[in-house]
């Protein structure tokens, strides 16, 4: 009988393993082309206990504002988000002052279109009425960056993509790593539109960053490498503003479930003690 059980267990172990592989076998094989794989960065927000580095996200916002915002909106974000927990956590007063620097299209009491000062509740404005208008201005429509860090990825291939889901070695930062690589990928000095990481290598966005371009107040190096990391971290936050709350909740849920399952294990054993 135990021999039988062993056989069953063995075949089922192989089935389980196979199913686990099947469950995971779903490469988000994104067309990052045949180019080099982005270098894996180390992030404070990675891993089960990950949290954003406030200073980094604040610097990233500065880079976004002074460089990217010329062409790219972050229309899913509101100014108020900048003061909310789990992000750059600017003060309410800072956010109010910042919002007031933006002009928001609205209507006055008489229904006439006006441009008023922004308020914390407003979204970051769109830069163009629609994609066609954006494309007409820039040659190609600069995409909104709100969820960009989740909208890009690259394939790590078999078997790495399977391990990317595993506790302890999970890797979820494909998108943000790709952004860093892309911003550092303008490696042909004579061609500002050549990018090592962009599919097809020819990108409409000419190299946007240069050393010393954005002034940091906190002593962080003012280099392209640092700018790229900071603005990518900022975009990870705009893509996933509830990341910290999610991971914190997850910890509580896991602790609870482990206690619960332990109790259930003993309850089950106790009840079944007489049955076998």
């Amino acid at each position: 009988m135990s021999e039988l059980k062993d056989m069953t267990m063995k075949s089922f172990k192989s089935i389980c393993l196979a199913l686990a592989l099947a469950g995971a076998s779903i490469t988000p094989a994104l067309a990052a082309g045949a180019g080099p794989s982005p270098e894996r960065q180390s992030w404070t927000f990675a891993g089960p206990f990950g949290q954003f580095d406030r200073g980094q996200v604040q610097r990233g916002f500065k880079v976004y504002r002074e460089v990217c915002a010329a062409c790219h909106s972050i229309n899913l974000m509101s100014f108020r988000n900048l003061a909310e927990p789990g992000g750059p956590e600017f003060s309410q007063a800072q956010v109010k002052a910042l919002a007031a620097e933006y002009k928001i299209k609205d209507f006055d009491d008489k229904g006439e279109p006006v441009e008023r000062d922004g308020r914390p509740a407003d979204r970051f404005p769109k830069l163009f009425a629609n994609a066609d208008a954006a494309a007409a201005t820039h040659g190609a429509a600069p995409p909104d960056l709100s969820v960009m860090a989740k909208a890009r990825s690259y394939s790590r291939g078999f078997p790495m993509f399977v391990f990317d889901a595993f506790p302890g070695i999970a890797y979820q930062e494909h998108g943000v790593d790709y952004l860093v690589a892309l911003l550092n990928g303008y490696t042909k000095a004579d061609d500002p539109n050549w990018n090592a990481y962009y599919p097809g290598n020819m990108i409409k966005m000419a190299n946007p960053l240069s050393d010393g371009q954005v002034e940091y107040g906190d002593g962080a190096p003012q280099t392209v490498v640092q700018y790229a990391r900071d603005v990518s971290a900022f975009l990870m936050w705009t893509a996933e503003p509830k990341l910290e709350a999610r991971k914190r909740t997850g910890l509580n849920v896991m602790l609870f479930l482990f206690v619960f399952v332990g109790l259930l294990y003993f309850t089950k054993k106790r009840i079944w003690a007489d049955a076998h």
């Binding site: 609870f256 206690v259 109790l263 309850t267 007489d274």
Partner: peptide, 30 residues
């Protein structure tokens, strides 16, 4: 519940109560 023929009724009951209580907390939290 089902099996009255148990050796240590108190410890057993404690276990059931604790499990039930944790289940209730979980349901509330969800």
């Amino acid at each position: 519940m089902a099996n009255p023929s148990t050796v240590e009724p108190t410890r057993r009951d404690m276990l059931f109560i604790a499990t039930g209580a944790v289940a209730a907390v979980g349901a509330g939290a969800v």
